[in-house]
């Protein structure tokens, strides 16, 4: 019995280590390579002991100023998309939670269908339309697109969170003379804040890393960081791997920190409604 328990324990430990290595190795490789002298990045056998250098970060700063512009664009677009997605998802989640009708029930299916559509299906036909209305290469077009693709998931999440808020609180506020918007703003939103943050985590991670929409709809003014990184993997003049890894590290850090800080809300979002009886 004891041996069996020990074997299970060892098995679990091995599984955890394997998952950690599998998940962390690429990140570790990128960060380490960004600090290695260029000659050592692909050395055979690999060099794990080396003199760290910031030369690639200096080269990134000097030679790829457009990358930092891309980071600024990514920040603006991510913030905008998050605000739009949260606002729409919270309002829609409230409606789905507190009201019921045939139309509303049928529209839930629409939310699911939206999630099932591959982005490329809508992306290319949208290109001439976006171009015709003069929104190509603007921040707003990406904000709206990113938000659109997350409003359905956000709505479902927010509905689950709002379902957990007792309706009696709405009724008490109503008796005190509060209208629907006031109830939503003063009662529901503060209590559903963890849900809002969970939705924010999903949108931020998606918007920060997204490539396809950014590639189709931006050029210069709204070019995001992932797009600049893709240019670094240039097929004409060769890849400067050190600079590429430095850029990847800079691109990775903000979203990694954000996810670490918001981790508990992300878990809350993933498990929302799981114990609803």
């Amino acid at each position: 019995m004891r041996t069996k328990k020990l074997a299970i324990g060892i098995g679990k430990a091995i599984a955890v280590v394997a998952i950690l290595v599998w998940s962390l190795f690429p990140i570790g490789f990128i960060v380490m390579s960004s600090l290695k002298p260029g000659q050592d990045i692909f050395a055979v056998p690999p060099k794990f002991v080396f003199s760290p250098t910031l030369q690639h970060y200096v080269q990134l700063w000097n030679g790829w100023g457009v990358f930092f512009g891309g980071l600024l664009n990514s920040t603006i677009i991510t913030a905008g998309a998050t605000i739009i997605a949260i606002t729409a998802s919270t309002a829609a989640g409230y409606v789905y939670s507190r009201y019921s009708s045939r139309m509303l029930n049928a529209s839930v299916m629409f939310l699911i269908i939206v999630r099932l559509i591959p982005p490329i299906v809508v992306t290319l036909p949208l290109f001439p339309i976006i171009n015709a209305i003069g929104l190509n290469d603007t921040h707003i077009v990406l904000m709206v697109l990113y938000a659109t693709f997350f409003v359905s998931l956000g709505t479902v999440l927010m509905r689950t969170f709002i379902d957990q808020i007792p309706r009696e609180l709405d009724e008490a506020a109503q008796i005190d003379g509060a209208g629907r918007m006031t109830i939503l703003r003063r009662v529901i939103v503060p209590l559903a804040a963890p849900g809002i943050l969970a939705v924010a985590v999903f949108v931020v991670v998606f918007a920060w890393n997204e490539f396809l929409f950014a590639f189709i709809f931006t050029g210069t003014n709204a070019k995001t960081a992932p797009l600049v990184i893709s240019e670094m993997i240039g097929s004409i003049d060769g890849v400067d791997w050190g600079v590429l890894f430095a850029a990847s590290t800079v691109q990775l850090i903000p979203v990694l920190l954000f996810v670490i800080f918001m981790n508990r809300y992300l878990v809350a979002g993933l498990t929302a409604g799981a114990t609803k009886g």
């Binding site: 600024l72 920040t75 603006i76 913030a79 998050t82 605000i83 603007t138 921040h139």
Partner: peptide, 13 residues
């Protein structure tokens, strides 16, 4: 913070 970021973004634009 969201409002601040949005205003900052608008200014940048």
């Amino acid at each position: 913070s969201f409002l601040g970021t949005a205003m900052g973004g608008a200014a940048a634009l």
